[in-house]
């Protein structure tokens, strides 16, 4: 054991020791989880792999809001260095608000859009002023 560790913890390759160790532990645990599942399935008489009736997303999930928020997030990050923090935030916080407020049937409501705009302006520029100007934190 001593010799084994000495070889593994040489400066040249000491950075690999833990990844292999932890990786092995993970692999073992994964196998245990599979066995546990197999045992349970056998006992309950259900098949080991059962895709029937399996949904990754919940039933009738809100496709627009979920995928919309992922896409908006990506665009937001892309725009941050181009438009800089304050402007990018005003635009995207507004869009996020509008997206999340959408209701089936009536997508845009004038009052709700107005509130979205106010929230976007106040939070973005308020945040920009507080963090950048007052706290002197580096922002995009």
């Amino acid at each position: 054991m001593q010799q084994f560790l000495k070889e593994w913890l040489k400066i040249r390759n000491m950075h690999l020791f833990f990844p292999y160790l932890i990786g092995t532990i993970c692999a073992i645990l994964f196998v245990i989880i599979l066995i546990q599942r197999a045992l349970r399935c056998k006992k309950e008489g259900t098949p080991f792999i059962n895709f029937k009736g399996y949904h990754f997303f919940r039933e009738n999930y809100d496709k627009v809001k979920l995928w919309g928020s992922v896409i908006l997030f990506v665009l937001y990050i892309i725009c941050l260095p181009i438009l800089h923090f304050a402007w990018a935030s005003v635009i995207f916080i507004f869009l996020f608000n509008v997206l999340f407020e959408m209701k089936p049937g009536k997508l845009f409501e004038a009052k709700s859009v107005l509130i979205s705009a106010v929230i976007a302006l106040v939070s973005s520029w308020g945040g920009w002023y507080l963090f950048f100007k007052v706290f002197n934190i580096t922002l995009p």
């Binding site: 997030f73 916080i93 976007a120 939070s123 945040g127």
Partner: peptide
């Protein structure tokens, strides 16, 4: 209304 603002803070 809350999550957009949380998102903003998280980005900062």
């Amino acid at each position: 209304r809350m999550y957009p603002v949380i998102l903003l803070m998280c980005i900062v």
